[in-house]
Write a protein that binds this DNA or RNA. Structure first.
Ligand SMILES: Nc1ncnc2c1ncn2[C@@H]1O[C@H](COP(=O)(O)OP(=O)(O)OP(=O)(O)O)[C@@H](O)[C@H]1O
Length: 731
DNA sequence: TAATAGGATATTTTT
DNA sequence: TATCCTATTA
């Protein structure tokens, strides 16, 4: 391959350094992912390394898929046996082969957050823990923390000293036992159990160590301890390990990512070669410079160089909206405007926000104005109630031990098996050391259950038994069979649920998804289908080819790029969130998130915020984000609703709060150019504008919080300007 | 046991 | 505001 045609010198060096530990530490848009991709292609095509020996780990399934496709097009052939995947998919793949060694069966189910929640609640009930003092979500976070640090339940119990901590550890232990009983793993367990497997069975580890002679990890800054440890185990034999990342883009500390994994890499691996990529290929210079300036405010970081190769481009634009609605309307307006004037398409726009809840208003307004959009959100398709119900049926059929799923569907649709009955069944199961399902089979033996109820239970059990006979059906056929046997469709049709129609449509779509899956994965089993839908994430459905604008959180945007980016809701309390103001670490992580957001933009970057916004059903005043004040003034310009320039400097005599205005205290010190007093501003007065040149004031609007000037420019017609903000001088 | 009403509670971020 | 949970009643 003619690598030098596609890579700069440093990238080239990284691609051709194959042996030994290699750290590529580089800023946003410097071509890190590109470098890994070419590195893989180079290994296979030029060095004739067997693709079987390569392992590449990406952050999302989407990134993995893309990398696979890129590599394929570079080497001109399919490399089927190459492992490019996320940590989670990698581990599932290993565990599906080996998990019997750990006492699970191969048809284990993967629990998502909601299943996890149900199970934790159960555990807390069993341990009689008062939910007033211990919140379920807090417990889940705690348990997740243990697993991210590879702390086993027994270790947690012996290590924890505090009263609350001891209780957390206890729940953790019971939760783990329950998971095992249910033959299930949660997300974190996928990694945890893989490590456990490697520790307990050195021969298995040795096999994978020999197999993966070359290992690459993208987005390494966001790995947690367990992931780090897993990689370390795998790389131990050959030490051909290449990690790539940017410490300034570490945005998942809250879920256990440890920035030190990347910072201490060289301490961990002797003779590490470090390569820095210092050219940014993605963004216009103004955008990049703003990003660089913002991140400079983080004190705990390694300084690095990132130079633009692109021209300045347009200045960053800031719009202050009166309300959240206006904010969304502005975005619509701008999208349409610059599509027309600059020829962008819908797919060129990314709208990024801090919290998922912010997307709603945008959806509403986009629908109203017929802007095609794609929402990358948290309420995933597969998490809708009706879909989860069907999945729970499938899981119950596939994995007889899965109690969480069983409980979910035992009375869904309502068939008269209520809480009281379930408690009785549960008790019986406990006493006899059998599973809940088995106690249902034996429900005739339980004297406290009426014959009528026990008949209903038997009916249900029979449905499951009959379905188990049909496991070998194609997934889509199987789903249809479930629906038929259970009578789910009729149940929905007859229900008064106002959403029944949508639910039916969703089920329709679910079946389509299954058909789709079968087409793509010929002969795949139902287990594989389940796994696929549990591990698939939201960003994975982002498709840059589709002709719609994209709505997503800043977190999801990591690794992507858009010609035009809107960062919306730039308000203190939202971004950065209130918590950040108490904790430096949180603030710095937030700032990194801001850095990530800014650097997604290639050509044009907008910031918006709303003066008034409803939060929790209460409308309150907002102030503009602290991060905005960290952007140098000469890189950003205030614009009005129609996208015309408004701002730049402050006029001292008109500031309401005396010499040190609020803005001056919290923003970059603004230059005060004129000592003009209010009564000197009158119609007929000559002024000079930074971009529009000389002109004369023709009208003055004195509002409560700003003064609007209508200025007739000698060469630019009449413009509306804000006295406060416009870059004007009085002459 | 099922359905409903009223109250508490939440918004970070996700594989 | 919207959702989720609990307690009450039919
Ligand atoms: N040598 C190069 N020549 C031309 N374009 C390049 C080069 N290197 C990178 N690019 C382009 O720059 C953009 C950013 O590349 P890439 O996504 O690989 O960067 P990254 O460092 O992984 O970014 P991030 O850290 O933001 O995820 C891409 O559009 C890529 O095609």
């Amino acid at each position: 391959m003619n690598l030098k045609d596609f890579l700069n010198e440093e990238q080239y060096e990284a691609v051709t350094t194959i042996d030994g530990p290699l750290l590529i530490l580089a800023g946003a848009g410097s071509g890190k992912t590109r470098t890994i991709t070419y590195r893989i292609a180079h290994m296979i095509k030029d060095l004739e390394i067997n693709s079987y020996q390569i392992l590449a780990i990406t952050f999302t399934n989407k990134a993995a898929k893309e990398m696979k496709e890129r590599v394929r097009s570079l080497i001109g052939q399919v490399a089927e046996n190459m492992w490019i995947s996320t940590f989670h998919s990698l581990c599932v793949r290993i565990l599906r082969r080996e998990i019997e060694k750990l006492g699970y069966t191969k048809s284990f189910t993967i629990y998502d957050f909601y299943d996890q929640k149900t199970l934790v609640k159960q555990c807390m009930e069993i341990l009689k823990i008062n939910t007033d003092n211990f919140e379920v979500s807090e417990v889940i976070r705690k348990i997740s923390n243990y697993k991210n640090k590879f702390i086993k339940p027994s270790e947690a119990i012996s290590q924890e000293a505090g009263y609350r901590e001891k209780i957390f550890a206890k729940i953790y232990e019971l939760y783990e036992n329950k998971l095992h009983e249910n033959n299930s793993l949660d997300f974190d367990n996928l990694i945890f159990k893989t490590i456990e497997l490697f520790e307990k069975f050195p021969d298995v580890l040795a096999f994978y160590q020999s197999k993966f002679k070359y290992i690459m990890v993208d987005e390494y800054q966001d790995t947690n301890y367990s992931q780090y440890y897993l990689v370390k185990l795998l790389a131990l034999k050959y030490k051909n390990i290449c990690v790539v990342g940017d410490d300034d883009q570490c945005i998942y500390q809250w879920r256990g990512a440890d920035i030190n994994n990347i910072l201490d890499f060289e301490k961990d691996y002797k003779d590490t070669k470090i390569i820095k990529l210092e050219k940014n290929y993605r963004s216009k210079a103004n955008i990049l410079n703003a990003a660089n300036k913002v991140i400079l405010n983080n004190l705990r970081r390694k300084d690095k160089v990132l130079r633009p190769i692109n021209s300045d481009g347009e200045k960053l634009k800031l719009f202050k909206a009166g309300s959240a609605e206006e904010e969304a309307l502005f975005v619509v307006n701008e999208i349409l405007r610059i599509m027309k004037s600059k020829g962008y398409e819908y797919k060129d726009f990314g709208i990024l926000y801090r919290t998922n809840s912010q997307s709603r208003i945008f959806e509403e307004i986009f629908v109203k104005h017929q802007i095609p959009y794609k929402l990358i959100g948290v309420v995933r398709f597969y998490e809708r109630k009706e879909i989860k119900d069907i999945i729970a049926y499938i899981k119950t059929v596939v994995n007889p031990n899965d109690e969480v799923s069983l409980r979910r569907i035992v009375n869904e649709p309502k068939r008269g098996i209520g809480d009281a009955t379930i408690d009785k069944l549960f008790e019986y199961a406990e006493q006899n050391g059998i599973t809940l399902f088995d106690s249902m089979v034996a429900c005739g033996e339980i004297s406290t259950i009426s014959t009528r109820t026990s008949n209903t239970i038997k009916e249900f059990v029979n449905i499951i038994f009959e379905l188990r006979e049909e496991k070998e059906l194609k997934t889509s056929e199987f789903i249809k069979l479930v629906l038929k046997k259970v009578g789910y469709i009729d149940f929905l049709k007859n229900s008064k649920d106002s959403e029944a129609q949508t639910r039916l449509e969703n089920i329709e779509e679910f079946i389509n998804a299954a058909v789709n899956f079968e087409d793509l994965n010929y002969g795949a089993s139902i287990d594989e289908f389940l796994e696929n839908i549990t591990l698939i994430s939201e960003v994975d459905k982002y498709d840059e080819a589709s002709s719609s604008v994209t709505l997503m959180t800043l977190h999801s945007s990591k690794g992507l790029e858009f010609p035009v980016v809107f960062m919306v809701g730039m308000e203190n309390g939202i971004f950065p969130s209130n918590k950040c103001f108490d904790e430096v670490d949180e603030m710095e992580e937030s700032r990194r998130l801001c850095y990530v957001g800014i650097t997604r933009a290639k050509d044009i970057l907008y910031f918006t915020y709303a003066n008034l916004r409803m939060v929790y059903g209460e409308t309150n005043f907002r102030t503009k984000s602290k991060f905005l004040t960290e952007i140098p003034r000469d890189l950003i310009v205030d614009i009005n609703f129609d996208g015309d320039e408004k701002i730049v400097q402050k006029n001292e005599s008109l500031t309401k709060f005396g010499k040190f205005s609020y803005d001056q205290k919290f923003n970059e010190p603004s230059k005060i150019k004129n000592n003009i007093s209010k009564d000197e501003i009158k119609i007929g007065r000559k002024i000079k504008h930074k971009t529009f040149g000389n002109g004369m004031i023709v009208k003055i609007e004195d509002n409560v919080d700003d003064v609007k000037l209508y200025v007739a420019f000698d060469n630019n017609g009449v413009k509306k300007l804000l006295l406060d903000k416009a870059p004007i001088e009085f002459i």
